[in-house]
Design a protein around this nucleic acid. Structure first.
Length: 539
RNA sequence: GCGAGCGUAGCUCAGUCUGGUAGAGCGUCACGUUGCCAACGUGAAUGUCGAGGGUUCGAAUCCCUUCGCUCGCUCCA
């Protein structure tokens, strides 16, 4: 395989991250630990900005989403209900002869790589016994380390949202449709961490669970479910939206978010999961991808991209599971539904009742409930619908923070080599972050540091801006070198305090040079106008 | 976890084959200088050559183990 220049780009990014203090390897002085990464001074600011923007966009700027911050260790039963205890532990078999690794439950289906005419369990390769690969980190709660004390570090933040659904519903004065958002750490004991921070064992997620009414309920209340328009943003949420409209709405909302922080649509990719790829409970999943240098290529040689976020329509699976496993009701009561139901013609009632019942039964049967018990429970659930009760469905936009950070770094990276008059070749690096995510918003520098009046004035400008944004003060070296340092950190603006600031040209008294990172352009701004100029650009 | 490659200063890398006790460029720091894009001068710091063990009079260099990184199998946010 040709050594692609993409790998060279990745290497440049990794070394820049270390050199400038974005990302370090965890525990480096002890030799490091595989799959764990620390954020340095610039990385911590960048990450904080990204999480704050997400939080503000998803919760504070909306009426219909509230926040949650749950613990990392939860009752282990949650992970039984969610399916993680079972599905995260595929028994695997290794073949010592052909070096292949196979799922133990598929050895009679997969062809042997060396003898494709035979399947794996018929070939003569020397195979290991099946070994469990549980991807959840285990620990013990309390001093006794026995089986009853086993607990897990959460492999996703989502389940806490489902587990606290009723509490939030009852204390937030929200009604379906509404969402619960959470940002936090999650842990997966990945078989092979890869691609810098892209697949880590400890990572951070930004997840929204947006609860909606089942289509049958929409139909009962609004007469019919809105048809989904052509691709694109479907506009302001409407009462007659079913899961498809809501799913499309969230995909477009999320893309708009990425665009607002500098990832234009052409840097993103989309993957609509095929029916075979979908989890059995999912109605649809659209992945938003970013074209990383290490991404695989499609038939035309175009980068396909790697997943930043998945937006899944998960039906009522999660709440149903927790209702079934905890024995606590997870349904909601909807007065509007009860009233509307009473006014429906008998045929319509019967039709909706039958469809809701069928969907409930389909779910219950798939979880292993006997046909008889499933019929009984589904009938009860459908009778509840007629009284205004249902289990909400959910749309889940789930994003990886660290992956997004890596995407922003990759997207921002730009370098150029130039030769000076002495023939010396140097490489200049500019990180073209969108000002909203840039770790340092503005560099403040006196033109010369041996002129105390310049330094004093520069300190004043720094102190003026500091309460509002992350400011970096620098008086070391030539002005060009200081600009270059800020370019490498991705600082969008630099302010230089010069003799005109002090009134050498009286008409320029109390103005500073504002220098733009991406093109070096300069303009003159009054110190008194700085905040009104800067704030809209960084928020 | 399996297979392949790699690991020398903050970064990029030379030195490893042919053992003799560690170097370059860039960066960093201090002082001087400085009139808008990595200017210059002087001075300084930094490595138990990824870690541990072995062979040897002597190991960055040869051998073993281990940790980490990259790539493939597998998995996902």
């Amino acid at each position: 395989m040709a050594e692609p220049k993409e790998n060279v780009l990745m290497e440049k990014i990794v070394s820049l991250c270390k050199r400038r203090g974005f990302i370090y390897q965890s525990s480096e002085i002890y030799g490091g630990i595989n799959g764990f990464w620390d954020y340095g001074p610039l990385g911590a600011e960048l990450k904080r900005n990204v999480k704050e923007l997400w939080w503000n966009t998803m919760t504070r700027l909306r009426d219909d989403v509230v926040g949650l911050e749950a613990t990392i260790i939860m009752a282990p039963a949650i992970w039984k209900a969610s399916g993680h205890v079972d599905t995260f532990s595929d028994p695997m078999i290794d073949c010592k002869t052909c070096k292949g690794r196979f799922r133990a439950d598929q050895t009679d289906e997969i062809a042997c790589p060396q003898k494709p005419s035979k399947c794996v369990n018929e070939c003569h390769g020397e195979k290991t016994a099946p070994r469990a690969f549980n991807l959840m980190f285990q620990t013990y709660v309390g001093p006794l380390q026995d089986d009853s004390a086993v607990a897990y570090l959460r492999p996703e933040t989502a389940q806490a949202i489902f587990a606290q659904f009723k509490n939030v519903l009852e204390t937030s004065r929200q009604k379906v449709p509404f969402g619960i958002a959470q940002v936090g750490k999650a842990f997966r004991n990945e078989v092979t961490p890869r691609n810098f921070t892209f697949r880590s064992r400890e990572f951070e997620q930004m997840e929204l669970e947006f609860f909606i009414k089942p289509d049958e309920v929409i139909e009962a209340i609004s007469g019919s479910v809105a048809t989904v328009p052509d691709p694109g943003h479907p506009g302001e949420p409407q009462p007659n939206w079913g899961w498809q409209a809501w799913h499309q709405y969230w995909v477009e909302e999320r893309v708009a978010f990425y665009e607002r922080i500098g990832l234009s649509r052409h840097t993103l990719g989309f993957h609509v999961q095929t029916p075979e790829e979908l989890a059995h409970y999912a109605r649809a999943t659209t992945d938003i991808l970013f074209k990383f240098p290490f991404s695989k290529r499609d038939g035309q040689g175009e980068l396909k991209g790697e997943e930043l976020e998945g937006i899944a329509a998960r039906s009522d699976f999660d709440l149903s599971q927790h209702q079934r496993c905890s024995g606590k009701p997870m349904g909601v009561f909807d007065d509007e539904l009860r009233t509307a139901w009473g006014k429906l013609p008998k045929e319509k009632q019967d039709d909706l009742w039958r469809r809701y019942c069928e969907n409930r039964k389909k779910y219950l049967t798939k979880t292993g409930v006997t046909d008889e018990a499933a019929t009984k429970q589904a009938t009860e659930d459908a009778n509840g619908l007629a009284k205004g009760q249902y289990i909400p469905h959910v749309i889940e936009p789930s994003a990886g923070v660290d992956r997004l950070i890596l995407a922003l770094l990759t997207n921002a990276y730009s370098d150029a080599t130039k030769t000076d008059e002495k023939g010396k070749v140097e490489t200049t690096v500019v990180l073209k972050f969108h000002p909203r995510v840039a770790p340092i918003k503005v560099g403040v520098m006196p033109l010369l540091k041996n002129k105390p009046e310049l330094v004093t004035k520069a300190h004043e400008v720094r102190d003026l801006l500091r309460p509002w944004m992350n400011v970096f003060y620098d008086d070391g070296g030539s002005i060009g070198r200081r600009y270059a340092r800020q370019d490498e950190a991705g600082t969008p603006f630099c302010l230089t305090i010069d003799f005109d600031t002090l009134g050498e040209k009286p008409e320029l008294l109390n103005t500073v040079t504002l220098r733009h990172r991406d093109d070096g352009r300069q303009e003159r701004l009054a110190i008194g106008d700085l905040l009104t100029w800067l704030l809209p650009k960084i928020r």
